[in-house]
Every structure is written in C-alpha cells, then in structure tokens.
Design a protein around this nucleic acid. Structure first.
Lengths: 237, 237, 237, 237
DNA sequence: AATGAATGAGGCTTCATTCAT
DNA sequence: GATGAATGAAGCCTCATTCAT
C-alpha cells in the first residue's frame, strides 16, 4: 500500500473553501451514518439532518444516494491512505508491505471504530473504495511476486483473498468479541496463503510497525496517485 | 462442510402442501430479485409481482423485508447443502472437507449464476445464511486442526478468512472475467493459509470431486442439523 | 359532431365498480381544479385532497400530472358528446351539424361553467381532448363539403379555425362579460368562413336547438366510436 | 395591425446599455425555452443557465416566473410589430390590413420557428401579449367595419375568431405538416367570416406583401403606442 | 388463503428565493 | 450588478401495510 495526498497543491479561493468545507461536513456525516447502520438505510434527508444542513443542500454536492456512498467510500479509503503513507514509503519488500498494510488497516478500524464500521458496512457496495484498496494490494502482490516472496497462481484470486479477509477482519473487530493481536494473526494467515513460509509469515506479521509521524515522500510510495476530483465541481453539471 | 436436509420427514397435509408451494414461489422470486440487484432494492411489492402473487399475499408468509431476506438466505444455504451432502458425507479428513466444500460452493455459483449472484449480493446482510455457512466451516476447521492438518492461531480469524474468501470468489466468478480452475485455486490458497503445506494444498485442492448422486447418510455428516422452521407457521401469528 | 357512449356494455365486477368510482372521483376533482386555475398549478397532492383520497391512491390511476390532464380532457370531451348525441343524431346536413355542435358546445360551457372553464384552461395542452373534438368537427367538415355547403380550400386550416374559435368562445363566455346569443354569433361567423352564404349562415345558426332528451341511436351519428379504455387497467402496468 | 417601436428615442447611459443587454439576454433565453417546451416547465434556474447568467441575477430583472412570461410575451409581440410596421403603415383599408397582418404573423412564425413556437406555447397564458395583439386586430376590425368591408354582429366575437385562428395557424405551421399558402388560406377564411365576399376575400388574401424595408412613419399606423416600460426600473424596487 | 384497492409515512427532488461576497 | 451556496417549502413518488371482499 502506498501514500496518497488528498490536499490539492494550489490555494483555494474563498468560494472553494466554503464548498470544500460543506462537502467535508457531508462526508463526515455520511461516515457517521454508515457507521451506525446499513448503507441502504441512509437517506439523503437524514444525511442533511446529520450534517446540520438543509435538505436541498445535499443536492448541490451529490446527485443520489449511490453517489454519496461512492464519495464516502473514496473518502474513507483516503483517510486510511493518508495515515499510513509515511510508514509505508520506506518499505520495498512486497511481503512486508502487504503485512504492514493489513495490520494498519485492521488497527485503524480498532482505533477509529466509526471509520471501521463504516468501511465494513459499505464494503459490499462501494465500488470505488474497493477499487482503490484493490489497487494498493495489487501493486504489492506484484512486487512481492517479482521479489520471489509470493507463489500464488492467480493474481485475481489472491487479491480476492487479501481484500475480503482484511475487510472481514475489520468488520469482526468492530462487531465481534475482542481478538488479541487480530491484525497480526490476520496478516500472518494471508502471507501463508500467498506462499510465504510459516516462520517468515510469523516474522513479517510481527515486525514493529514504523511510526506514522515522519514526513512523507510521495515519490517513494511506488503507487501512482489517484487523480483528485476537482473540489468545485457541481454535482448536477 | 456437512449435509443438511430441508425436507421434513413427515408427509404434509394438503393445506401444508399449498402453503409450502406458495412459500417456495416467494423464495424463488426473491432469489431471482436478489440475483438481479442489490438487496436493498427488493421491495415486497416487487417481490409479489415477481412471484405472480398479489400484494397482500406476501404478508401471509413474511412480516417484513428483513424476514424475506433472512429466509431467502437460509434457503440459499440449504440449496447448497442439499447438493453436496452426499459427496460430503464420505470424507473424514478436515482439510479435504474444507477443500471440497469450497470447490463445490464456487462451482455451484458458476453452474447456477442466479444462486451465485443472490448469495454474493446478500452475503453482507443475511446473518442467518452466514451463520449456517460458518457453522459448516467451523466444524471442519476444528476437525482439521485436531487431525493436525491446520496450524492457524485463532479459529475466528481463520473462519473469517475462509468465509470471506469463498464469498468473494463466488461474487468474482459471477461478475468478473472467467478464471480457469477458480474453485481449485481458491481452495489451494485457503489451505495454505490454514497451515497445509504447499504441495499438499495443491493435491487436496485438485482431488477428484466425488459424485453428487449417491445416497446420503445424515449420521455421517458430523454436523448437527439446523432445526427446521415449521412450514405451517403463520407469519403474523 | 356525433354521439359516443362512455359506458361499457358489459356489467362490471364489484372490484371494477370500485375502481370506476374512484376514477370518477379523481376526474371530477381534476375538473374542478382545472376550472379554478391554470393547469400547471394542479399538483397530484392537491388533486388527492380535492378528491378526498389519500396521496398514494392517485398513483393507482395515473402515472403523472400529464396523464391526469389527458384523462380529464377525454372525460370533458365525453361529457359533452354524451349530452349532444341525441340531438345530433338526427341531422344529416353538414353545415347544420357544425352550427348545432358549436352552439351546444358554447352553451354547455355557459350552463356548466366548471366544465367550460376546465375545457378552456386545458385546451392548449390536452392533446387527446383536442383530437376528439377535432375528430367530430372534421367529420362534419367533410360531410358539409361533400354536400356542397362548404367551399374552404384546406380542411386543416378550416379545422383550426373551427376548433380555435369555439374554444375561444367558451373561454370568453366563462371569463368575459356576457355576450347575448354568443353561441349563435359564433356559429354564424364560422359558417361564413367555411363558405356558407351570409343569409343561410344566419338561418343555420339560429335554427331551434333540438331537444336533448330523446333516445340516441348511435348508428346514425356517423362517427366511429372511440375505443373505450379498459376500466380495470392499472396505471403502472 | 400597426407599427410600434420598442427602442426608446433617447440614448442610454452605459449602465442602461448593460442592463438592457442582460435583459435581452434573459428574454432571448426565455423565448428559446418557451419554444422548446411547455411554459409551465420554464424554471428561473433553467432560465439563468440558458442565458449563461447566475441564478440570482434573474432577480435583478424579474420578480417571478409569471413576470418573465409576461415580459417575454410583450417582447415577442414587439418583435412582430417592429417587423411589419413599415409595410403596415401604408395601408388604410381595414380588410387589407387584417389580411396582411395575419399573413405576416403566420409567415413570421414560419420564418422564425423559435418565435412561432414560443408564441404558440405561451399564447394561452400570456395576458399582455394577447392584449397587444388584440389591440391591433380590434383597431382594424373597427376600421374595416366603418369602411363597410365587415358585417359581423359582435366585435368581441369577431376578435376571438381572428386571434384564436391566427394563433392556431402559427401553432399548426410550426408543429404540423406543411400547408402550402397557409398564411393566405388562413387570411381568406377569416375575411369571409368577417363578411367580406368570397372573391374579394381571395383577392385581399393574395395581394403582394409590401416590402418590409421601407421607412416607418409612426403617425400613420393609426394605433396609439403602448407605453414603454422604463428599462432601468429595478424589479425588486 | 388470496386478492388488490386504499392508505399515509417517508424518502426523493426541484426550485424560487435569500444573502454574503 | 453579478455571483452561486444555502435554504426550505412543496411537489413527486414509492412502498410497506391494512383490510374488506
């Protein structure tokens, strides 16, 4: 997995700032709602209320419930990416990257259960979110395979296993009873599935997690940055 | 995984037959609808139309949309169970059972895409279905561990990996591009994750699938049968 | 113009009767609303209230505002047709039929201003109504032309003149100041436009209006009956 | 019908020019919108977009949708008036003026279908437009009657016939199939209705149309100019 | 049991209008 | 004057649910 920046480089005009702020208000409200219940239960009316905005304001930003969910999914993925980018940038071992990414993902869900529950709840339907996450994983799968760590037959099958497992782990860790070292156990099993030997799997899955507070150098993350959607874009255009 | 029978042993009265037939009509209709779209889009009105029944008739069988989905999920799980029970009854090797179960599951989704898509679509919300499937898997995980095939640390984490991976595989194989030997590749990776060695994982995942046409002996499946919901029970009582 | 029957020949089942009654309730309410204001101000919510029915009931009968207006237009045209069918059946002189038809039309608007205002208000947009009325007029224009009473060049232009003039007359007589013998003056001018000589135009336009109470013989009206829309047809089917 | 000038005689300040330009932008946009659909579908938001102006700007010029429509109607009438004023000023025969006016009106709709469709669509609701047009017609009806060309009984009935017929002709000629010499056939029938003899009706309706390029002398049009609404008047004042 | 008309709560969506910039 | 984000009232529409037949 690799770092991504969600802040545009150029300064925004005042109008843009306002727009951006309202959009954030909406996405945060949506995250809280998804976190509480099923994505199908989120109504745009309810969203407006949760965000302390008028009913019609939502339509300045999103055309439909679907669009809200997709945007929220992207936002959720970005929030995770931003967090781990720093720690992530320093690793060039594919197997370690997979292990670290998974551990941070599950751990993030534990530290921020609102995020975790929201991710778990919409993971079945939010295409864009899944595709962002898949993009990270796929990169590392290829890297690890080229480096000889992985021996799986089919990249798509491996991707399914990684993504489904880590999402299930987040769900379980926010809903179910506590599992000690959940992130590590999850990563360890996945590494084994990918073809890493048992002892090395255990070792990679228990490496100390790098601090998240160091500066990020995007050039090293090895993943092309997703193009940022222009903030000022009007929903109905 | 182990066999289960959904047909009650005793003969039903004529009234029961009629009730049962209408109920089946509804569950089949629901399966088709879930197969077509997201579970949140299934309305009881639409369900009645799909089943060629009147609007109000649905309420003789289900109290709410939620209940329809749960019942459909159970029905979907049962349809799979019925299918594999025979082949499954003869195996007493936990690792092989896991492999065979996964392969049949994914294969079933390929042979009956309506079933596959429906399972994939509601797997996120149908608690009962997941719990039935989990029950099968958990039994085999314990069996395989006791037999020394598996070396995973935590049963719940392993269960998450197995269930999430197999559901993702069904989804991918009904939605995405064709992957040759998808069931086998999936099973192989899961066995590795559970601690089976690489070569043995490959072997177990490619054993010939036993025929499904032989008689079933429930006593051998090793799994307690789920209590059958009484058919004549009226929804609103 | 010629008689049409809006009652289907066969007896209706009880369900059909109920449906038919509710539909009539809605059409009457719509007529009153159109009569009061601009057609664009008629909301389906308002319609439901005017008809003393629940909001959603409207949608069992009409899919949209447009459909309500069209159905109301057809109903308005039918109400006029039913009224004049008797008197009209006995005339075989095209020019006289035109004159009588126009006079009854304008007079009907005077006697039933709710009908008149509704007709005037929706005449610009209700395609079906216009086409029903046009059908009557066109028949008589052809008849009168074949009989040598009319000498107009183009049937479509003549039709425009007749229809537009009679609708304007209804509007004026329900909105504007009273004009004595409005129906007759209107008919007289139209006959002249169609090529009837001045004195004959005056005579035709002032013939005694036949009573409306005599039995109707549809076979003599000379106009093919419009196919009755099946009453039990569900709006959303 | 008679000429009217919509340009004030005095030069406008720069502010006035800007205001006038924006107002024109709005009226042209409104005309295009009315031309495309039913007048009830024109929203002020859509109008702003069509005019390439911001949402709020509309409120600097019009207080409501109603006001937009009325202003547009007046503008449409003026555009016609300006066009025919020259040709019209030279005629002092009431019957010929009616014929010429009608022919130019229908022809204008054919030459500028956007204008034609807009006129047809709003003719049912735009009071001011109808009253401007009625004013022209009424003048000529009186003139022709005084000159002995017309023999109708009631001026209001005659006015209804003339106005309704010519508007219907414009609508038909923009919506329906082509009718050769539509303007002339229309004028001929109307003249007959007003009491002009058949052969003279034909002759008047087929006189060569005077050129529109000659200078106008308002004093000869015989119609009092409508007072021009002051351009700089702010809508919300 | 089955039917389907009626209900009305609740979500969706538009849009006239305001107002700070 | 122009802009466009925000507002909230009002209309549109669906659909779970009831109930008389």
């Amino acid at each position: 997995m690799a770092g991504r920046k969600s802040e545009p480089a150029v300064a925004l005009s005042r109008g843009h700032k306002k727009r951006s702020r309202t959009r954030t208000q909406l996405l945060d409200a949506a995250t809280r709602m998804y976190s509480r219940g099923d994505s199908s239960e989120v109504s745009l009316a309810g969203l407006a209320e949760e965000a302390n905005l008028a009913n019609g304001t939502v339509y300045n930003y999103f055309r439909s419930r679907e669009e809200v969910m997709e945007a929220t999914g992207v936002d959720l993925a970005d929030r995770f990416s931003d967090k781990v980018a720093a720690a992530y940038a320093k690793l060039d071992n594919g197997a370690q990257r997979v292990a670290i990414g998974m551990r941070w993902f599950v751990r993030h869900g534990q530290e921020d259960p609102v995020w975790g529950r929201a991710v778990a709840r919409i993971s079945g339907t939010a295409k864009a979110m899944k595709s962002i996450l898949a993009n990270y994983i796929r990169t590392d799968l290829r890297l690890g395979r080229k480096q000889g760590h992985f021996t799986f037959d089919d990249e798509d099958v491996a991707l399914d296993l990684c993504l489904a497992t880590v999402l299930a782990a987040v769900r379980t860790s926010t809903e179910g009873p506590f599992i000690s070292d959940h992130p590590e156990k999850c990563a360890e099993m996945v590494l084994r599935a990918l073809g890493v030997g048992p002892s090395q799997s255990k070792r990679f899955a228990h490496m100390p997690l790098p601090s998240l507070n160091e500066p990020v150098d995007d050039a090293k993350t090895g993943i092309a940055k997703r193009k940022q959607a222009p903030l000022a874009q009007k929903a109905r255009t």
